[in-house]
Design a protein around this nucleic acid. Structure first.
Lengths: 231, 231
DNA sequence: CTCCAGAAACTGTGATCACAGTTTGCGTCG
DNA sequence: CGACGCAAACTGTGATCACAGTTTCTGGAG
C-alpha cells in the first residue's frame, strides 16, 4: 500500500485543501481490498496500516470503522482483532443475488438520463476493459470495469441504491481477484458492455436492465465456479 | 438520550465485561434515531452527544462514523458537520423498493428453518405489536414490530442480506415516527403478521415471501402518503 | 528434543490536548 | 434603530499517551 499524499510528514498538517486524511486512508485501504492486495483471511492491525501509510493510528481507526460498517473488514468479536473477510460460497451467493437486484435496477433508472457524453465515456471505458483483458492487467481491468458500471449507476439519481451497490462491490472485490487467479483473463473476456451501452443510448430502460443482469449473472457464475474449484 | 451504563464515571473503566463503550454509544444513538428522538434535519455534534451520554468524544466519534457509513447520519461535505438525514420522497421510494426485495427474500430463506419455539415467539411479538397499537405507544410498537421482523430474518442464515435489512431499517426508522405522528396508531393497525407466521409454521417459503411483501408494501404506502401530505 | 512458563511486544480502546475552520453573538459605529 | 465587525465559543480532525487484554517469542527445566 502506498503512503497517502505527503509521504510521512510526522506532524502538523496545515491542509487548507481540506481533504481529510481519514478519507485518503479509507480510499487506500478500499483499493487494496478491492484489488486483492490484502489477501482475504489475513489479519491487519491499526498500527501496521498506519505505519505503512505514514500516518498516526487515529485516521486509520476512522477508516477501518467505516470499512467494518460496510462489511469490507471483519472484526473478530472475541478479541476485537481485524481481518479481511474470507471468501465463502454462502457470502458469494448472497452478494450475487443482491447485486443482481440492485445493479440492473440502477441501470434501468439511469436509462432516461443518458446523454451523448455518457455514451462516449462508456465506449472509452469498455475499450479500456478490453485492453486490460488483452494485456492480462488485473488492476487495470478491475478499475475500468468498476468505472464502466458506476458511470452508468451514477446517472440513476438514486443515492440510496448507489450506496448499496458501492457496498456490494466493496465486499465482492476480493472474490474477483480470485477469479482472475484461477480462470485467467480469457475467462472474463465476454461481457455485455456493448449491449448495455446500446440500450442506454436508446433510453431503453428494460434493455439496459437485461444487459446488466446478464453481464453480472455471467460474471458471478465464473466466480462461483472459481470459488468452488478452489476449495 | 440516557447515559450509557455507568452514568458518568469520569475516568478509568476497568470493564472486564468487555462491552465496548463505543458500541453502547452506537446503540444509544441508533435507538434515538429509530424512535425519532432526534428529529430529522437537525444537526448534532460529537461533544454534545458525548456530554449527553457521559462519555468522552472518542467513542462517540467511532459510533458516529459507523452510523454515517450506514447512512443513518449525514455528514455535510462542506463543513463536515453532522446531521440527521431529512426525509425526502425520493429516499423513501428507494428504501421502500430495497426493503421490498430484501425482506421477503429473508423471510423465504427463513421458512425452512422455522421451529415451534420461533412460532411461539412470533405470536408473542405480534401480540406485543397489537398491544402497543391499542395503547398508542409509539416506542413499544416500533420495538415490537422490529423484533417481529428480525426474529424471522435472523433465521434465514444469510448474514449479508441480514446486514442489508438492518441498514435499511436504520435509515427508514425516522420515517416511521412521522407516519405515527400523522396517521396515528389506528392507521397502522392492519398488518400481515398472522399470515406470515402461519406460512412460516408450514415452512411455506413462497407464502412467507408474499406475506412479508404485502406487510411491507402496505406499511410503505402509508408512509408515502404521510410524507407527501406533510409537505 | 519437548514442553511450559514468563516476559516482551503488539492488539484495540479511550482520554486528553492542540489546532484550524466555522458559526454565533455581542458590542459598537454609522 | 439597523448593520457591520471582531471576538469568543464550538465544530471536526489528528496526535499522543495510558491501559488492559492477547499473542508471540524466548529461555530454561524436564
Amino acid at each position: 500500500m502506498s503512503p497517502v499524499s505527503p509521504p510521512a510528514s510526522p506532524r502538523r498538517k496545515p491542509l487548507a485543501d481540506s481533504v481529510a486524511v481519514h478519507d485518503q486512508v479509507y480510499d487506500a485501504i478500499r483499493l487494496a481490498l478491492i484489488t486483492g492486495r490484502i489477501a482475504p483471511g489475513v489479519g491487519v492491525s491499526l498500527r501496521s496500516l498506519a505505519a505503512e501509510l505514514g500516518v498516526s493510528p487515529m485516521p486509520v481507526r476512522d477508516a477501518v470503522r467505516r470499512l467494518a460498517a460496510e462489511r469490507a473488514l471483519a472484526i473478530n468479536p472475541a478479541n476485537k482483532r481485524l481481518s479481511v473477510p474470507s471468501l465463502t460460497a454462502s457470502r458469494l451467493e448472497q452478494l450475487s443475488q443482491a447485486r443482481l437486484w440492485v445493479e440492473p435496477e440502477l441501470a434501468a433508472r439511469a436509462a432516461p438520463h443518458v446523454d451523448a457524453a455518457l455514451v462516449k465515456r462508456l465506449r472509452e471505458l469498455d475499450a479500456a476493459v478490453d485492453e486490460a483483458l488483452k494485456l492480462g492487467d488485473v488492476d487495470a481491468y478491475m478499475t475500468a470495469n468498476h468505472d464502466f458500471h458506476f458511470a452508468i449507476y451514477e446517472r440513476a439519481e438514486a443515492e440510496v441504491l448507489l450506496a448499496m451497490a458501492n457496498g456490494l462491490w466493496l465486499q465482492i472485490g476480493p472474490f474477483m481477484r480470485v477469479v482472475f487467479g484461477r480462470v485467467g483473463a480469457d475467462g472474463l473476456a465476454a461481457d455485455r458492455h456493448v449491449e448495455a451501452t446500446e440500450a442506454l443510448k436508446a433510453h431503453d430502460a428494460d434493455g439496459a436492465r437485461r444487459a446488466i443482469a446478464a453481464d453480472l449473472s455471467e460474471g458471478m457464475d465464473k466466480m462461483r465456479a472459481a470459488v468452488e474449484a478452489g476449495r
